[in-house]
Amino acid sequence: MQFTRARDFTASRAWGARDIASFDGVSARLHWTDQPYRWHINDGDELFVVLDGRVAMHYRDAERREHIQQLEAGDIFYASAGCEHLAHPQGAARILVIERAGSA
């Protein structure tokens, strides 16, 4: 059994993570960051939950046009496999990411 108070979690570097759980080939990781990630495409589905802070989620549609959706604490972004996206926090943020274990 494990309890985690997300708002107290910090890391020594941007996108530092704490493994929360791994089951049935899926991982749940708590991330802390104050810096953008990078444009990427996951090789599986990803669930991105903002627990604390604000994140500007940039994503590209099928025509590769860029869009931005502002996410606040409690907001959820679902990226299906092949969705190109970039998370850009607005200050410090804590994010729960649920995806296939070892996903790139």
Rank of each mutant, 00 (worst) to 15 (best):
T4I: 15
H88S: 14
L30T: 01
A81F: 00
I95L: 12
W15A: 06
H31M: 12
E66L: 06
A87G: 03
H88R: 12
W39G: 01
V55W: 04
A56W: 00
R5S: 14
V26Q: 14
R13L: 10
H67P: 00
D52R: 09
D61W: 07
G102T: 04
G102P: 12
I68Y: 00
R5M: 13
A21V: 00
L96S: 04
G44R: 04
I41N: 06
E84W: 05
F3V: 15
R18C: 03
I20Q: 14
F9N: 07
D75H: 12
R7T: 07
A81L: 03
R7I: 08
Y37N: 14
N42A: 13
R94G: 01
P89A: 00
R64E: 15
D61M: 04
D34L: 00
R29C: 06
H58W: 06
S12H: 09
R18G: 04
R29F: 03
R7M: 07
Q2T: 15
D52V: 08
L96P: 06
L96Y: 10
A6R: 06
A17S: 11
A104H: 09
D8H: 13
A21R: 05
R64Q: 13
I20A: 13
R7L: 08
Q70H: 13
E63Q: 13
Q90G: 04
F48L: 05
V97E: 11
L71D: 04
A87I: 02
S103R: 06
R54T: 12
Q70T: 15
G25C: 01
D8R: 11
I41F: 09
E63A: 15
M1L: 14
S27E: 15
P89D: 07
V26M: 14
G44H: 11
T4Q: 13
I68L: 07
R29M: 07
E66A: 08
R94P: 00
Q90N: 08
H88W: 08
C83I: 13
H88E: 15
E63P: 00
W15M: 05
D61E: 05
E66V: 10
E46W: 02
H88T: 14
R5G: 11
Y37C: 14
